[in-house]
């Protein structure tokens, strides 16, 4: 079928500002948006630049704004869109490096603030794993799915308006460890997220939930963090 791709281009070596370029191609209904972009790059304009790797929604490389919404290009199929006119832009809220490639430095910087690694410096059992019940693992199983694609933070109006806001992804990662029964750095992380630029900057707008390609309810986890904070205050 005939489709058109209106893509927001930017070549840092030639352009002063981003500009639009439209490509008209013939695509199969089962094509992903990623396939369409590759078709343009392979057959029409080799300079079209975007990140990609696994092409099936697990690595998170190809997060971009498709028809106004942050999503993974490899999970969006042409046939699922009524309008065959596609508007493709880089993720909002991230500095653009070139075309659809954006800079993730600030994103990872904020992630680091919540100590995104397992901390338990007690001596573990010698010949066994630390025990954890299925119910205890259940608490973090949803937050563990996160592939750090950036879609949530990119879609968050609070993050747009406050560059210091930790953002949904960092807060979700904070929960992954705070909610883990084996981790011991809960107090430190609570201190980090209990900040006006931490959980309190979330205004429950829910854009992150819509954007998440792994269908994680990020806002739910942020409110869970808030309830954890309340529990400690009372």
């Amino acid at each position: 079928m005939d489709i058109s791709l209106k893509i927001r281009r930017f070549n840092p070596e030639k352009d002063k500002k981003p500009n639009w370029q439209t490509f008209k191609i013939i695509a199969e209904p089962t094509w992903k948006i990623l396939d369409c972009l590759m078709h343009v790059k392979n057959e029409i304009d080799g300079t079209l630049t975007f990140r990609k790797s696994c092409a099936h929604g697990i690595c998170g490389s190809d997060a971009m704004k498709i028809n106004g919404k942050a999503a993974l290009a490899c999970q969006e199929l042409v046939k699922n869109y009524k309008s065959k006119k596609f508007v493709i832009e880089p993720l909002p809220g991230f500095p653009v490096i070139k075309d659809l490639v954006v800079d993730f430095d600030l994103f990872f910087e904020k992630l680091r603030k919540v100590l995104p690694w397992f901390i338990n410096d007690e001596r573990p059992p010698a010949d066994s794993e630390r025990l954890q019940s299925p119910e205890q693992v259940e608490k973090i199983l949803e937050s563990v799915k996160c592939i750090l694609c950036g879609g949530c933070t990119s879609s968050c109006p609070s993050a747009w308006m406050n560059a210091d806001y930790l953002g949904p992804a960092a807060l979700l990662k904070a929960w992954r460890f705070i909610g883990d029964s084996r981790d011991h750095a809960t107090e430190e992380r609570i201190r980090v997220v209990n900040d006006h630029d931490g959980v309190w900057r979330c205004h429950t707008i829910f854009n992150c939930v819509e954007a998440c390609p792994k269908e994680i309810n990020v806002t739910d986890h942020i409110t869970m963090l808030r309830r954890e904070i309340f529990k400690r205050k009372l």
Binding site: N11, P12, E13, K41, D45, G46, T47, T49, F50, I97, K98, D99, V101
Partner: peptide
């Protein structure tokens, strides 16, 4: 086609 230096994925 891409002769650039920045992110020349081609």
């Amino acid at each position: 086609q891409d002769h650039g230096k920045v992110f020349n994925t081609e």
